[in-house]
């Protein structure tokens, strides 16, 4: 029970980061924390082989590429400064 609560807390920390942080790198890190939280939840409930580590890795790779492209095209990593699309 306590370990489930811990997993839940881990997920909530990730979600807090996604909602509150403005630095894009931080947002990506928060998403990864959420992924690790879900993965550890799967381990706890009995999915004790493989996990979803490879999917987390793929998401990281794409996110990393997007971070680089954001900095190159916008010149900033502040999520609030991405204002190209509105309305």
């Amino acid at each position: 029970m306590i370990s489930y609560l811990g997993c839940f807390g881990l997920f909530m920390i990730g979600l807090y980061g996604v909602m509150v942080k403005r630095h894009i790198y931080k947002i990506v890190i928060s998403v990864l924390i959420m992924e690790f939280a879900v993965d550890s939840f799967l381990v706890l409930i009995g999915n004790r082989k493989w996990g979803t580590a490879l999917i987390v890795l793929s998401a990281t790779l794409i996110a990393a590429a997007i971070i680089i492209r954001v900095q190159e095209s916008f010149g900033t990593l502040d999520a609030d400064e991405l204002k190209e699309l509105k309305g």
Binding site: S3, G6, L10, I13, K21, I33, A37, L44
Partner: peptide, 18 residues
């Protein structure tokens, strides 16, 4: 044991976000 590991993970996560 398991609770300890998860607890450390939560601390690490808080540090990573903040």
């Amino acid at each position: 044991m398991l609770e300890g590991i998860i607890f450390v993970a939560v601390i690490c996560a808080a540090a990573a976000v903040e």
